[in-house]
């Protein structure tokens, strides 16, 4: 059609991504784009570009408070949703080469190793966390040292070929707590971190440890800026 003569094949992928984000495609075309998104990183990146750049148009829409019963309905729906989380992006990109080790075996082996190297007293029940990915697989095990001011982190899987730094965060229990950085950890070896004095008394049961991918050198902002690849709560064994 003469209307389209100026649009070459090189532009068609860009156009399709923009049309998807804009919302002009019909249901079948939308499903087709979504199917291709999982397979074609270039198309996914193009969709991300348009979502980010066109997103500002939504400022023109007036905010409308939802009815008061909307939140209770959502909270009720989470009960069934939380159990079956889908595999997250980073898993599908094969970031991890997981060891074929069950989480219980792993935790037991890690504690034995930590006790052996004298970081946790075998006589006392240590505070531990198994940091799992969104599919529940263990990626790190962390234990508070006997002195209470150190944390030993043992990787349970290997990160492959990701140039990003791996940063560990402490999120105290309770509402509206912000993450505190505990420092960078290594993908392939256990590491002992010294906890900053102001955070020592926050290493409590139910505090959350989380691991995110960050630029080399760690988060520039003091808060996580990259995807969270594992998290777990500290518990007494």
């Amino acid at each position: 059609m003469s209307d389209e003569h100026s649009i070459g094949p090189a532009d068609s992928g860009r156009i399709l991504a923009a049309e998807y984000v804009l919302g002009v495609l019909d249901a079948a075309e939308r499903r087709e784009v979504e199917r291709r998104l999982a397979l074609e990183p270039a198309l996914a990146s193009e969709v991300a570009f348009w979502e980010e750049r066109l997103g500002g148009l939504a400022d023109a829409v007036a905010a409308v408070s939802p009815p008061a019963n909307a939140w209770p309905r959502i909270e009720a729906a989470l009960g069934t949703a939380g159990a079956a989380r889908p595999a997250s992006m980073w898993q599908s990109l094969a970031f991890w080469r997981g060891f074929a080790i069950g989480s219980a075996t792993l935790a037991a082996a890690s504690i034995a190793a930590l006790a052996y190297i004298g970081l946790v007293p075998a006589s006392r029940s240590p505070l531990m966390a198994t940091l799992t990915g969104s599919a529940g697989q263990p990626n790190f095990v962390a234990a508070v040292t006997a002195t209470g001011n150190g944390l030993v982190v043992v990787p349970a899987s290997l990160l492959t070929n990701d140039p990003r730094a791996i940063e560990l965060w402490l999120i105290p229990p309770g509402p509206a707590q912000r993450p505190h950085s505990l420092g960078l950890i290594q993908p392939g070896q256990p590491i002992r971190l010294t906890i900053p004095p102001d955070l020592v008394d926050r290493l409590t049961p139910d505090a959350t440890l989380a691991v995110s991918l960050e630029p080399p050198g760690g988060s520039p902002t003091g808060l996580p800026t990259g995807p969270v690849i594992a998290s777990g709560k500290l518990t007494g064994l």
Binding site: V64, S65, G82, I171, P179, A210
Partner: peptide, 30 residues
């Protein structure tokens, strides 16, 4: 908001409620 999403990823419902309070009027309007 990013920090709250980290907590949500860790399974924290309170964090989701905070995000809801901050964003639901905008998203409902859309």
């Amino acid at each position: 908001l990013a920090a709250a999403l980290v907590r949500v990823a860790a399974g924290d419902r309170n964090a989701l409620r905070i995000i809801y309070q901050d964003t639901s009027a905008k998203l409902f309007g859309i």
